[in-house]
Design a protein around this nucleic acid. Sequence first.
RNA 1: GCCCGAGUGGCGGAAUUGGCAGACGCAGCGGACUUAAAAUCCGCGGCCGAAAGGCGUUGCGGGUUCGAGUCCCGCCUCGGGCACCA
Length: 830
Amino acid sequence: MTEVTPEGGAERYDVAAVQEKWLPIWDELAPFKSGQPGDTRPKKYVLDMFPYPSGDLHMGHAEAYAIGDIPARYWMLKGYDVLHPIGWDAFGLPAENAAIKRGADPAAWTYENIATQKASMRRYACSFDWDRVLNTCDPEYYHWNQWIFLQMFERGLAYRKPSNVNWCPNCQTVLANEQVVGGLCERCDTAVTKKKLTQWYFRITDYADRLLDDMEQLEGQWPDKVLTMQRNWIGRSTGAEVNFVVEGRDEPITVYTTRPDTLFGATFFVVAADSDLAAELAADASPQVQEAFDAYLEEVKTTADIDRLATDRPKTGVFLNRFAINPVNDERLPIYAAEYVLSDYGTGAIMAVPAHDQRDLDFARAFDLPVRVVVATDLDDPATSGVATPGDGLLINSGSLDGLNKADAIAKIIAELAGNGRGKAAKNYRLRDWLISRQRYWGTPIPIIHCPDCGMVPVPVDQLPVKLPSSQGLDLSPKGTSPLGGATDWLNVSCPSCGKDAQRDTDTMDTFVDSSWYFLRFLSPRRDDVAFDVEQAKHWLPVDQYVGGVTHAILHLLYARFFNKVLFDLGLVPVVEPFARLLNQGMVQMDGSAMSKSRGNLVRLSDELEKHGVDAIRLTMIFAGPPEDDVDWADVSPSGSAKFLARAWRLSGEVTSAVGVDFAAGDLTLRRVTHRVLNDVDVAISTSRFNVAVARTMELVNAIRKAVDSGCGAADPAVREAVEATAIMLSMFAPYTAEDMWERLGHQPCVALTSFPTVDPALLIQDSVICVVQISGKVRERLEVSPSITADELKELVLSNEAVQKALDGAQIKTVIVREPKLVNIVPSA
RNA sequence: GCCCGAGUGGCGGAAUUGGCAGACGCAGCGGACUUAAAAUCCGCGGCCGAAAGGCGUUGCGGGUUCGAGUCCCGCCUCGGGCACCA
């Protein structure tokens, strides 16, 4: 594997041979088993977001897993028992689509891809504990999806309701709010429409406050961006609910408002056009109103969501010829139905205050409704300017509120409304309950049986898992109802409660259910009696470092946090937040844009690995920049990485001192570099500045080359110390090279199981430092001084320096700033 | 429209609390070795200058400071998130 050139020059580093050599040895040694009995080391749990088996691994995987491997290997070197698992997020539409397109069995297609990815993943040499692998499409896994579902069902956290849901006409299935991106289906970019359907939901809104408030714990540990996105998504607002009596209706209508202080400024009332309330109000009015309303509703319904997104859309609506009574002044407010009020936010009805809300003002101007200012500002009158004044000011035209500012008025009016039973303080959320049922085949069956007599009956837990029927003979093509409905033998069962003929629920769960708790299953993946071992959870949680793409900033991370809280309430997990630290790696691009076949800028990972080797690709990904930044493959140099690795590797063959030689006797200059680099790498890794860690390691390699060629020589113990340190540090980025170096240095495998060398603080202290002398902030001179020099000594030394005197040119000195030992700034008087 | 984040050489990027801007690498240029090339090793790399030396410089304009890539104010550009949420 090592060849010596004919002239006896530099050895050639045979990348392919080194990879082929170590792979079977590592398989044999299985160095990364975690949680072995009797292991007393402290724990760390490093988690990479698991892949979806869509084909072979791609460049994005290469970056993500190279990054995730660093903290795992770092903590191993630092003496921790590290849990670093991997598995496959294996349910989902692509398997089904492949089945429809090519007639493949979704299960066979999925397991084939998993086998391919698994083989690639092994070659990629991440420090995974291969004993813990799981696939979410295994019945042994989704069994526990069903179990958790039933726990939630029992507690009212899983429920079915009819609602206007997001519908993707292409995927022919419903979508959660989180899966609609800008009015388009997250998966296929088809414009999403609405459909009235009865669907399964998880009551995530029950946890809205905790999901929001517990983020305080994550401050500084998660990217701010992700925290902000989650906060916006939950969208908590505070205000009041106010009851309006409606003429000709027994029950008052409640509205939600964040501005109860502007109640005296309400001049009309609006209900969501697509709400039941609007339909009822129209029906109880005249036939003419009913007709106008029906026509309007039809128009609204045919407008796709994507068109409703335009903010400058003109306001439309229809007058219902009904009136609501303002509880604070008994004024009659005309009621309109309009699409700009949403049926699923608040109560689907609003009081309209056109002077202080732009949307209400736009509507008032379109329908020629009065505008009454109740908050005095120094801005133009909204009635004439067309610009609402939403800001603070003193209340006017508002009875008992006159003269108060916004905050005081809100407090006072809420107290008054609460006193006479006409309203109360209230909170509202943008977050909606999580729609989890899907009308597709390749997912977890919902463990519910529908009985004509007993209604919804949970499948008894001892009969779990409800296994998916074979896809053989099923029509998997999207048709708006679940393919499982066609599996007659599977579908028809007897009711667990009364024994009569009944049918299974035919929907399957959103695959985000699978990934919401996989980090728990990794703790005891082979247990067949529980979802996960509670004692193991106590030991391993929380996840110390979670690594994954920012694409999951809302969806997966919100859902997983929700699941964790539910399981916390069940007493099964010990922590409120599952992921203590989060790192979002960037994406891999080519020529400034995301790689894709259609763009023709796809770089195949397998080609790159073939050309440059695993280590060079990993190193390139890491060295390209900070882990959270995107990597443009056009800007980086895998061959440069390969060159560096070969340079480091060659050094391991040049060391002539023996294993165990006393480093203390080594060359001081090189030893100082070694220890400074070890120290810097340590700090850089623990602050996730992996690219800097690589740069420092390169500096060490350069220093060793110099020491061997023109310094202390290859036999000096300091050279062995430095090359060993290089191998150990490289094991985090380039495991094959590091392992081979380690062996050439005379050690047994595995370098990953050694420990990070201890930094000698004495070697971090220089025996002289360069002091910069500035005059008015400009560098004029550099002096070599002792690091322990005092301020007075330094000042005197500098001022008596000939070059400094010359530069000063006799100028009067105003002040001298001394920052010993590195800087002196002389300020001459002007 | 609202809310974040970022602008540093030809390129990717580095720079504790404000203290030598450009670490490390890529591409480029020059040299050594070689019959030659590859590989390897060494050096250069903002501008003027042969050199000594001088000048300039972190998107733009101001400010604070002995001193600003870093802090404050106002712009410009790019990227991301949200988008009728009452």
